[in-house]
Computed example of a mutant assay.
Amino acid sequence: MAISQRAYDHTSDFSIVRNFIADIFFQKPTYQLWIPSRFENSVFYDKDRSRHVRLWWDDDVLVGVVLVDPPNNITSILHNKFNHLLPKMIQWAEKTLINKSTERDLEVFAYSLKDDIKRISVLESLGYQFINESEHTQLRSNTDPLPEGSLPHGFYIKQIESNDYDQFVNAIKMVFHHDRFTHEVFTEMRTAKFFKDDLLIGVFTNNGVLVAFAQQRVDEYKIIEFEPVGTIPGYRRKGLAKALMRESFIRAEKYTPKIFYVGGAPTEEADRLYKSVGFTNMRIITRWSKKIHRD
């Protein structure tokens, strides 16, 4: 066994990393944090991935990936037989964030499943402190029955098309306060392998105003991710999102998914919505913080 590490090269490593993440995803119960479509999505927010992703190898087999994402987030995905590499991976990410920052005092964030005792022990040994629950991930089988859900009077569902894109980008910002999601990012994102025009749908008022949206990302591993899903303020608690997700399941059938995945906000409202449409097997992702002072 010869452990080595090197920088990520998008041309040669993109498929290798996605295959690795998919393998980890299906290694129950060691699923860790990301799925392949999330890795692809991250590229659209960071054009310098070669400097911000590091790969760890056992001879010629990929066993670990660590990424840094703005603002100061560390995500590490690791084969469970190589947990001893985690401290070095996180330390590499910390050094990378320090080198790219101009601040003397830097706060960095790392993530762990709530029940991953080994990972949490490593984070604590490196000086990280628990902050909060970051995300509730849940799964739904394609064989589950369709949930009930219908729209109230005055609304209809359709595909979000090019003449709706301005509304969609603005709705994302209203729901998530996500300033990084610009028209330019969305234009490029539509070139992604996971993007399917027919799986980006919305609820509109009879006046043509987009008030709720749901996108499903599809990968070759037959994992379909709901991302994003949201309803703008003023139109919540009307059953719009539930009806929209029901329609999403119907439209996804032609892609023959193995599993549906959602990474929802850690709120009772989001948990209630996803439970109502058949998502189960909740895994809680926790957020940890460390403050670093540069000399």
Rank of each mutant, 00 (worst) to 15 (best):
E107L: 09
F249P: 02
I284C: 04
K291F: 15
A7D: 05
V218A: 01
P257M: 02
S141E: 03
N163W: 07
I201D: 00
L85W: 04
F186Q: 04
K258L: 06
P71H: 13
I3R: 01
L123T: 15
G264F: 01
K158T: 10
E220P: 05
Q215S: 04
L33W: 12
E269M: 05
S134M: 14
Q215M: 06
F186A: 01
G64A: 10
D144V: 07
I24W: 09
F155V: 06
I201Q: 05
T267Y: 01
K47R: 12
V63G: 10
K158A: 14
M1S: 07
D9K: 09
Q216S: 11
Q167S: 10
S37G: 12
D69K: 08
Y221L: 03
G230T: 12
S150P: 15
I292H: 03
I292E: 06
K196A: 07
R49S: 09
V277C: 00
Y31A: 15
N41D: 15
E103P: 07
I172L: 11
D69L: 12
D23L: 04
N132D: 11
P233G: 14
P145S: 05
F25I: 09
F20N: 01
A212D: 05
Q129N: 14
A212G: 04
I250Y: 04
H52K: 10
L78E: 05
K254M: 05
Y255H: 05
L85K: 04
N99P: 08
M174Y: 08
Q138A: 14
S112F: 08
I285D: 07
N281C: 05
P145G: 01
A241E: 03
Y128W: 11
P70K: 12
S248E: 06
F204Q: 11
K47C: 13
S101K: 08
K238F: 06
A243F: 10
P70R: 10
N41W: 14
K28P: 05
Y165L: 08
K114E: 12
L151Q: 09
A192M: 06
S162P: 06
L210W: 02
F20C: 00
P257G: 00
D115K: 09
F20T: 00
